[in-house]
Structures are given as C-alpha cells and as structure tokens.
C-alpha cells in the first residue's frame, strides 16, 4: 500500500458515498415491496432510478473516465419516461392491484 494520502481519502470517501447510496436504494426497494398502493410503488421506483444514477456517477468519479455519464443520462431518461408512463396509466384508473 504505497498509495498517496489524497488517493486514499478520495477512495474511502467514494466507498462511503456508495454505501450510503446503496442504503438509499434499499429504502426505495423496501417501499416498492411493501406498497401499500400502486402509487407508492411507482414513487419507490422513481427514487430507485435517481439513486442508481447517483451510484453510477460515483463509480464514474472513481474510474476517472467520462464513460459512465452516458449511462447515468440513459438511466435518468428511462426512469423519467417509465415513471411518467406508469403515472399516466394510474390516472386512467385501469390498474388492478
């Protein structure tokens, strides 16, 4: 372990941030699983998407390449259109729980 202090600080902070975001994702999954209603599950899914985007951004910082930004942007886009479609579906009142 001859890594300089700066690299260690940033590395461990990134690990800490990833653990925190991982816990946040677990909270969102918990809400998706227990509901109780369809709108709660969709809200959990939306939060999960944003948190996954953040996780990708921290991985991107760690790797030092901009490769992960495209992935984060794609996740954000898909999450947005998915949630909007699901909310529209709820509005029609044709979801069977």
């Amino acid at each position: 372990m001859t890594e300089p202090l700066e690299v260690l600080i940033l590395g461990w902070s990134l690990t800490l941030a990833q653990v925190l975001v991982g816990l946040a994702m677990a909270c969102a999954v918990y809400r998706i699983l227990i509901g109780p209603r369809a709108q709660d599950r969709i809200l959990g899914l939306d939060t999960l998407y944003v948190n996954a985007m953040l996780l990708l951004l921290t991985i991107g910082i760690r790797s030092g390449t901009t490769l992960y930004f495209e992935a984060a942007l794609a996740i954000g886009l898909l999450g947005f259109s998915g949630t909007v479609a699901l909310a529209k579906f709820l509005m029609r009142g044709e979801v069977i729980e």
Partner: peptide, 23 residues
C-alpha cells in the same frame, strides 16, 4: 477497492466532502 484518481490534496478533500454530503 479504494482506487481513485490522483488529485491534489485540496481537490481530493473538496470532492470527497461534496460526494459524501450528496450521498
């Protein structure tokens, strides 16, 4: 596990603080 880009110390501290606060 804890590999990270090599930044100057001030930048490493700033980035670390911002990322952990955001998370």
């Amino acid at each position: 596990m804890s590999t990270a880009p090599h930044l100057p110390l001030w930048a490493a501290l700033l980035v670390a603080a911002l990322v952990v606060a955001g998370a």
